[in-house]
Computed example of a mutant assay.
Amino acid sequence: MRDHATVAGQSSPPPVASPIADCCERTMSDSDTPLPQPLLDDEGLDLLDDFLHERAGPDALDLIGAHGFLVALAVAPRELPAANWIAELFHGTPEFDNEQERETILGLLEQLRRNAIDVLETGGLPELPFELTLDGVPPEETPIGDWCAGFMEGVFLDEPAWFEGDEETTATLLLPFMLLSGLFNEEPDMAELSRDTQRLESLVGQLPELVLDLYLHFRVPPDTAKPKPRPKRPAGKAGKGKGRGGKR
């Protein structure tokens, strides 16, 4: 795995206190909060979970990490050839029993990525495959940390594209994912923030909205009013597919 202490060519993450605090202060009324939408049904998630855990090899991302990775690819400012991100997700070439299995597994991965794009494009929120709470457990010891680490792997795959143009804003928007991933805990500022359990819990609850913020950052010009998510009933915790373990 690459050295995660550098982002956008910096020797350490940018100052984090104010941007993270700003994220925690953001609020959205119940009437404005859309219900998160699943990116795959339970059957598709189960098929991917089984293959990634049992057959994909020890270096492949697990289901939770792959989910975060593919959502990052949906957010990314430019699209990469499938061969590039498939090789990174599996950290090698996956072995399939036959062509049908190959088409099924790769098709599900692409479907998850494409569904994430479709949800975000309409101002919706992606449903994440875990409960949006830490319950006092450090993020890196939970599926939340695995998901955010997978998301950051998606960023690292094409890092220059993410930071072209408004590098400072992108870095600020990525800070919650960096903090929750646990990949930057050795950085002094991050280590200090990681001890603020109330702040971490607030960020976890906002993860779907933070994903949408990043997507809109790359799609909506600065002088254009960003569309609000379509009003729906208040969002609860992630629905089907919760609690899938962060197997590594």
Results as ranks from 00 to 15, higher is better:
residue 85 W to C: 07
residue 5 A to I: 03
residue 182 G to M: 05
residue 99 E to W: 12
residue 30 D to F: 13
residue 222 P to S: 06
residue 90 F to E: 02
residue 2 R to W: 10
residue 223 D to C: 03
residue 221 P to A: 09
residue 129 P to V: 00
residue 169 T to Y: 11
residue 142 T to W: 01
residue 118 D to T: 15
residue 133 T to L: 10
residue 227 P to C: 12
residue 198 Q to R: 12
residue 129 P to L: 07
residue 239 G to T: 08
residue 179 L to Y: 05
residue 88 E to S: 11
residue 18 S to M: 09
residue 194 S to M: 07
residue 33 T to D: 11
residue 240 K to E: 15
residue 211 V to M: 05
residue 122 T to Y: 12
residue 153 E to L: 14
residue 7 V to S: 11
residue 124 G to T: 06
residue 87 A to M: 12
residue 160 P to F: 07
residue 211 V to G: 00
residue 79 E to F: 03
residue 199 R to A: 14
residue 68 G to F: 03
residue 228 K to N: 13
residue 51 F to P: 00
residue 143 P to V: 10
residue 40 L to N: 07
residue 3 D to T: 02
residue 201 E to T: 01
residue 92 G to T: 04
residue 162 W to M: 05
residue 140 E to N: 08
residue 36 P to H: 04
residue 140 E to P: 01
residue 87 A to I: 06
residue 185 N to P: 06
residue 3 D to K: 03
residue 114 R to G: 07
residue 53 H to Q: 14
residue 109 L to A: 03
residue 81 P to N: 04
residue 94 P to S: 11
residue 20 I to A: 06
residue 58 P to L: 13
residue 5 A to C: 13
residue 114 R to M: 13
residue 70 L to K: 04
residue 169 T to F: 08
residue 227 P to H: 06
residue 237 K to N: 14
residue 21 A to E: 15
residue 32 D to M: 13
residue 134 L to T: 00
residue 222 P to F: 02
residue 174 L to W: 05
residue 88 E to K: 09
residue 90 F to S: 04
residue 225 A to Q: 15
residue 196 D to E: 12
residue 133 T to F: 10
residue 5 A to M: 14
residue 214 L to I: 15
residue 138 P to R: 04
residue 191 A to C: 10
residue 48 L to C: 08
residue 88 E to T: 10
residue 4 H to C: 09
residue 201 E to P: 09
residue 8 A to E: 09
residue 41 D to V: 08
residue 118 D to P: 01
residue 191 A to Y: 06
residue 155 V to L: 04
residue 39 L to E: 07
residue 29 S to P: 03
residue 98 N to W: 03
residue 70 L to T: 00
residue 53 H to A: 15
residue 242 K to T: 14
residue 9 G to V: 12
residue 42 D to P: 03
residue 132 L to R: 05
residue 5 A to K: 10
residue 63 L to I: 15
residue 65 G to W: 00
residue 123 G to I: 02
residue 92 G to S: 04
residue 219 R to N: 12
residue 106 L to G: 07
residue 79 E to M: 08
residue 26 R to C: 10
residue 189 D to V: 13
residue 39 L to I: 12
residue 33 T to N: 06
residue 83 A to N: 12
residue 12 S to A: 15
residue 202 S to W: 00
residue 147 W to C: 04
residue 176 P to T: 06
residue 215 Y to T: 11
residue 7 V to G: 07
residue 202 S to F: 02
residue 47 L to G: 01
residue 158 D to E: 10
residue 242 K to A: 13
residue 206 Q to M: 15
residue 32 D to W: 04
residue 234 P to I: 01
residue 35 L to F: 14
residue 187 E to M: 11
residue 226 K to Q: 15
